[in-house]
Amino acid sequence: MSQEPNVAPYDSEPEDHSFTRRGFVKVALGGVCAAYGVAVAYPVYRYLNSPVEKAAAASKVREVKLPDADQLPKGSALMFKFGTAPALLIHHEDDTWVSMSAVCTHLGCTVEFQPAQSRIFCACHGGEYDARTGAVTGGPPPKALEVYTVTPMEGGMTITRS
């Protein structure tokens, strides 16, 4: 194949009226490409987003029942999942019950109830919260932990949020 190949023009339309036609073809082609792009991207997005949708539905939960929670000794706490996020149920020494979110309002670490100091502590950046009201008592957290309502039920506790 050393010879110069003979190149036949594949599509030789006349040049005169081609401007508008070319413009139309361009727009149509762009439209088709965009349609294909969407037709491929939409299922892929929904596919990848599936667990997100599931979790979002689960996180809408307003009420959690904790059977056997009344056995929790005084001065200790229990971690449980409220929807998809961790939460705390604290049984104080004076027999009061408090429940609140266990997600630090600073950068989202999980907090810990420290009965000795009777406080809630976040190890990530030293955030501190009041163990009854959830109010910030020290460190970087910008706002209080969300507090839930605790209602005793037959053999356990029901936690609700508004």
Partner: peptide, 9 residues
């Protein structure tokens, strides 16, 4: 059966 469009992929 459960993941959106999983059957299609």
């Amino acid at each position: 059966n459960e993941i959106h469009f999983g059957w299609l992929i």
